[in-house]
Design a protein around this nucleic acid. Structure first.
Lengths: 332, 332
DNA sequence: CGGCCTGGTTGACACGTTTTAATTGGTTCG
DNA sequence: CGAACCAATTAAAACGTGTCAACCAGGCCG
């Protein structure tokens, strides 16, 4: 490995290593003539700064971590785009980690991020045990929750999932549904729990008993899980309407129902959550609950970097967006 | 920032820093009793190794870079899963970068990866200028091309896109299509060029003139681009069949055609490429060309890490998979 | 009993950068 | 004319870890 360091550049340009460092980090402090001589030496030698040494010396890197539940879910991809845009504007980098809804993988990811000495972490927690994050914060790493509301001493950016669930189910009931199913992942996932509570609240408002809502829990919140759920529903008797905790589930449910000859929405109404791009292009265009996804990532990152830049003057904020009902054919 | 380092652990465990380092890196060399004492100290102090210092000293990190054209494309997400699985098996990390098909963003990403001193880079190049990668390789960073075939002195894992394009168009012609359109991104993208050449070859085999294939080029290879292309087609007169360079484009095309009252496949047949999960769930289930996506990522990573572990004994390989035609209703 | 091996452990140095205080050479001011 | 100052630059000291030669205590063999 050919390693050309700052001091070889210095020798070539006839200056001291310190000056090269200044050219790199505070160009205004070095005379124009010297600067251009150094810059030329850098080009000629193909020097690229060693980020590790830099980070080591500085005590922290110019990177933030983003830990999401599922990189395969377009919802998180859109969040990531929001993060990426802000982060690269501020000349930082983002390390994207996937927890796959597994607390163990999440812990592993956080350890890697801690080792990398990231300035901060954006995370959608996989479980409700946030003690690992507490330890991270004690070490001076800023943390912002994404799509997850938090209490007063930490920033968070979320969407009101209870309201979303209520919106979805109120809509289904309004269209005449009396027996409902809720398809979701593990109840340990907050989003699922909240959306379910919203659903129950809608039932209550309409004077329907809570037993009206049958729970179908699947191991993975993707299309595969949805297909699994649909087969369960077919076995155990179809409801009037199905509310899925996200669009991937709904797409999976839809596919199996159609294959089985069930008409949507005539026989069974269907609504998803997240309003990902593919939903409107589905076999039966999918009703859904829309969230300001890109904004979620963008604002979370701004909060995070603000906290990093001024840890003391920073006031923690909990931001809560409202979701929006999008009606398409599947619940027509 | 509370920084507990290796030497505080050493003091607490009553050993030297060197021994702590050994516990971390070559546990077998240290006596069981000492090791457990050190491990306890680590737990008690909540020590986490400083990755920067580690990579600085070692000269390289335990990370590889993955540069893809579009993180929003499920094709690359699936590739990334393959990469991630292998990489984490071998106790490495992956830094995911998105070039968005832009050579400038690609260059920026490569610089960041070079600064991080990654062991290797997996990349689907955005343009055909690979000189930046050459410089990277000179510095001892292993490079493997993903979904891109290469010449003898570098590893690559690809799928035969010419064959895929031929497969798709032969199928369309076989179903009676005589006037065809090819929807794709910039011709600078190799995948597009190859698939188009395959399409032309299929025309030739069937004795149709090359002019039979109308090109529609869009700036972005996603659903948005597809919608744009469909509007162009509607304006300029519909062909018998449309071949899209990927499924996202095809889904966008499909949506606009259906909205305009065009029947698929009766009026226009449609086929995409990649066979992403959503294609089979589309309004009209989409015919497509399937690629061994996960395998692509997995095998590329294995080649990369093999090269890293034994740079001299390593023999560069160019692996080429064959794609597969998947017929669904859209081209029925 | 002395030399030799072996498994365990140590100490000190090096990795490449940033930063701080110190040092230049030059200029202005009292 | 000396002092005080300024801008530009330098030298040296960190940052936390990995490595490697050296060292040490036993045990074994001759």
């Amino acid at each position: 490995m050919v390693t050309v360091g700052i001091k070889e550049v210095a020798r070539r340009a006839g200056v001291s290593p310190g000056t090269v460092s200044n050219v790199l980090n505070r160009p205004e402090r070095v005379a124009a003539a010297t600067r251009s001589r150094v810059e030329q030496a850098i080009r000629e030698l193909g020097f690229v700064r060693n980020g590790s040494a830099s980070t080591l010396r500085a005590g922290q890197s110019r990177a933030v971590g983003l830990v999401v539940l599922d990189v395969g879910n377009p919802f998180f991809v859109e969040v990531a785009r929001g993060v990426e845009d802000v982060v690269s504007d501020r000349d930082h980098a983002v390390i994207l980690c996937n927890s796959g809804e597994s607390p163990e993988k999440e812990t592993r990811n956080l350890r890697v991020l801690a080792e990398q000495r990231v300035r901060g972490v954006l995370i959608t927690p996989a479980g409700d045990d946030v003690s690992g994050l507490g330890r991270l914060r004690e070490r001076g790493v800023a943390v912002v929750f994404v799509d997850h509301s938090a209490s007063g001493d930490v920033c968070s950016v979320a969407v009101d999932d209870v309201a979303g669930g209520e919106l979805a189910v109120r809509h289904l009931i309004g269209n005449g549904a009396r027996r409902l199913a809720f398809v979701s992942g593990s109840k340990a996932i907050r989003q699922c729990g909240d959306r379910r509570r919203g659903a129950l609240r809608a039932l209550e408002t309409s004077g329907l008993p809570p037993g009206t809502l049958a729970d179908v829990v699947v191991p993975e919140m993707n299309a595969h899980g949805g297909q699994h759920a649909a087969r369960t529903l077919l076995d155990e008797g179809l409801p009037d309407a199905v509310f899925c905790a996200n669009d991937l589930l709904a797409l999976g449910v839809l596919r199996v129902l159609l294959q089985a000859g069930v008409r949507v929405p005539e026989d069974v109404a269907l609504i998803g959550y997240d309003d990902i791009e593919f939903s409107s292009a589905a076999a039966v265009p999918l009703s859904s609950i829309r969230q300001p996804t890109y904004q979620l990532g963008k604002i979370a990152t701004e909060l995070l970097l603000d906290e990093c830049d001024d840890p003391d003057g920073h006031a923690h904020q909990q931001i809560m967006f409202q979701p929006e009902l999008v009606v398409r054919e599947s619940s027509g």
